[in-house]
């Protein structure tokens, strides 16, 4: 029995920041995926970065001081 994977998303000011974050996480080997921002989170038309909830702390640490993050949300 595996518990169902849960995700969170990072929101950024712009897609440039999302791409910058993606590069850093790729280099750090931390799994993630750029996806459209879900409608229930924001009305924005850009992308956000989805990650497995369990990695939140490591991901935030990897990006600290390098990419400005607007918000962190759980993805339901």
């Amino acid at each position: 029995m595996t518990p169902e994977e849960t995700y969170g998303v990072l929101l950024f000011q712009s897609v440039s920041y999302a791409i910058k974050a993606e590069k850093i996480l790729l280099a750090a080997g931390l799994p993630h995926k750029l996806i459209p921002v879900p409608r229930h989170i924001s009305s924005d038309c850009g992308v956000c970065l989805r990650f497995p909830s369990g990695l939140e702390e490591r991901i935030l640490r990897a990006l600290e001081g390098q990419v400005e993050i607007d918000a962190v949300h759980p993805l339901k």
Partner: peptide, 18 residues
């Protein structure tokens, strides 16, 4: 179109620009 839509081609374009 870069970053406008969030689908794979849009993200690929944003990567090119970055």
């Amino acid at each position: 179109s870069p970053g406008r839509s969030g689908h794979r081609l849009s993200i690929a374009a944003a990567r090119v620009i970055f």
